[in-house]
Every structure is written in C-alpha cells, then in structure tokens.
Amino acid sequence: MAKRAIEPLLWMLFSGGGVLAALFIPMLLFLFGLAFPSGLLPAPSHQHLLVVLSHPVTRAVLFLLCTTALFHGAHRFRYTLYDGLQIKHLNELISLLCYGGAIVGTVVAGYLFWRAG
C-alpha cells in the first residue's frame, strides 16, 4: 500500500518539474548549449558567471529546477517504457532505476549548489 500512497507525490513532482522545465530549459539550453559554444552570441565571462551562480536566488531556483526536472524525467520515462515498449514485467526494476537515478541526481545537485555559495 505504501506504493499507492507515494503515487500522488510522484505525479505532483512530474507536473511541477514539467512546468519548470518548460519555462526555464529552452532559453538556458539555447544559450549554454548552442549560442555560447558556437560563438553565435558572446559567452559571459567566467567572473560574471561566478557572480550570477553564487547568488542564493540563482542557486535555489536552479536546484529546484534540477531536482523537479529529474523527477519529471524519471516519471515520464518510466511510463514511456510502460506504454511504448509495454515492458510491464520489469516494472519494479524500472521504477527503482528511474527514481533512484533522480534521487542520486538530486543529491549531486544539492552538493554542487550548496558548495557554490
């Protein structure tokens, strides 16, 4: 029954992460993943990034984005395997790997953003 009790929380993390990912990731990915490395736009200086990333608000927002986006991804990918490939007999293993990965990622993100202060 414990499994049933946690299901609403997982759906909440899924939708919260979905909203934050949709709001934040397109611009961040465009800038840091394409525009800056390719030289399309001038990349911010190391000093500027240090200042921006050290700010408590940035760290809190990015940590929240990372953790909820990871749980969003874990939840959605679990159901992709369930609906898309109809892997139902491995349900428990898949859940363990997906949510386990999200928990590990949350711990790593927490450590990085905590250290960034």
């Binding site: 986006a69 874990a74 959605r76 990918f77 990965g101 990622g105 990085l112």
Partner: peptide, 12 residues
C-alpha cells in the same frame, strides 16, 4: 524526458 535529463546533467 530523456533530453530534459540530459540538460540537467549538462547544467550540473
């Protein structure tokens, strides 16, 4: 979902 997870890794 996979690409969102990729972005989180990239950001970290």
């Amino acid at each position: 979902s996979l690409f969102i997870v990729w972005f989180v890794l990239y950001l970290l």
